[in-house]
């Protein structure tokens, strides 16, 4: 920043104006997504997720875990210890793996924002193929780490 101002103050100012404009421009869409996250965190808190995933078993359990993973947005530093404690309590490794993978790769709540930046088709195809891919990941991890 200092370097940039020293080298070319006008260029730096233009860059800042541009940064501010694009920030202000995208804020309405960000606000929607953050509002959705606020609601989602209330009804799908880590505790609720733990109850749902902890009991999940079989293919039905994997589907359930993948849906929860796709809808929730839990940061990794909360999700990994949560997943580890669920494994210790006897949750299935495939259900946990599909949950972790969809949690990171599939974003239903952020989809409006992704559509805004990338377009509808990209959002649908990237998220749905990531969803299916997460089942492959879970199956392989089930064999390797199960």
């Amino acid at each position: 920043m200092v370097w940039s101002s020293a080298r070319d103050a006008r260029k730096t100012r233009a860059a800042l104006v541009k940064a501010w404009n694009s920030f202000a421009n995208i804020m309405p869409d960000f606000a929607v997504v953050l509002g959705l996250i606020g609601i989602m965190l209330t009804y799908l808190s880590p505790n609720v997720v733990a109850v749902i995933i902890g009991k999940a078993s079989g293919l039905g359990g994997m589907v359930l875990a993948s849906i929860v993973g796709s809808v929730t947005l839990i940061p990794g530093f909360v999700a990994f210890p949560l997943a580890a404690s669920l494994l210790k309590q006897g949750a299935g490794v495939m259900q946990i793996a599909v949950f972790v993978s969809t949690l990171m790769m599939v974003g239903i709540v952020t989809a409006p924002l992704e559509t805004k930046y990338f377009g509808r088709r990209e959002t649908i195809i990237r998220n749905s193929s990531s969803f299916i891919f997460s089942f492959i990941v879970a199956a392989v991890i089930g064999v390797i780490a199960g």
Binding site: S4, T12, A15, A19, S22, F23, L34, I37, G38, I39
Partner: peptide, 25 residues
């Protein structure tokens, strides 16, 4: 929760946009 995610967003996005603006230039 909504307040928390807004605070988090405000700590993440402005620096990113600032850096992007400079990189862009």
């Amino acid at each position: 929760h909504t307040f928390d995610v807004f605070v988090q967003m405000l700590s993440v996005l402005p620096p990113i946009f600032l850096i992007l603006g400079l990189l862009d230039a």
